[in-house]
Amino acid sequence: MKILLHLFFLSLSAILLSADPFQKGSEAYHASEYEKAQSFFKEALRQEESAAAHHNLALALYQTQQVSLAAWHLERALLLDPLNEEYHFKLGALRQVLSLPNTHPEWYLIGSRILSPSAWIAWLAVAFWLSLGAFLLPLFGRFGASLSFKAMRLIGPGILILSGIALYLNRDLPARGIFIVDTPTTLHAAPASAAPQSGLCRPGERGRVLDQHGEYLKVITEGEARGWIRNTEFRRIQDRS
């Protein structure tokens, strides 16, 4: 009976494992079925977003020459897992393939991404109320601050400053994105395709949204070129889908 139960659970776990789109995507990737692998990894992302799924999808896209989209998924993977050196390496290599500068982010930028912006905001709020309490309560009660209050007066403002800096460094996160184009594409001086050319954006290049008008986004590229581009040709890092 015990053997039968073991067999049942083993087969159940095998079925569950085979149904995992992430696993299926990995298998398809190793079978060089990159289109299929992309579908599985996309399904895995729909079920539950993970840096690994974004990373693997990026490699599958890279294999089918969709390099700018691959760059977006690697950027997204690094946003979710900023301390992963392997992702940094691969993004750098991909950017070299795209003839973009391979710059490793500074330590403080990586540090600011250790927590999500929401987590930094939560820490900021907690630190604010703790700091306020640590300073105000002894003042109102007119009593000498105990050791715990003194510790709160040190730790609270420290966390407050730290989270404030992290949020400042991440302030333009909603505006950041990648140019999803196959060839260098024209930026226009106005939100219209007939407007004169004001610059060029390269495939996979990073950019930042400055303004929006209808189907057009006003962007600034890594190369400091400014102009308008269709919103289908620029994808924000923060957009999950």
Binding site: H30, A51, H55, E86, S116, S118
Partner: peptide, 21 residues
Amino acid sequence: EAMLTLNYRPEPARAPDFAIL
């Protein structure tokens, strides 16, 4: 080779947004 090696351990990710506000 290093470039094309997959990651085999997916871990749930935190949402990198400002939704808490």
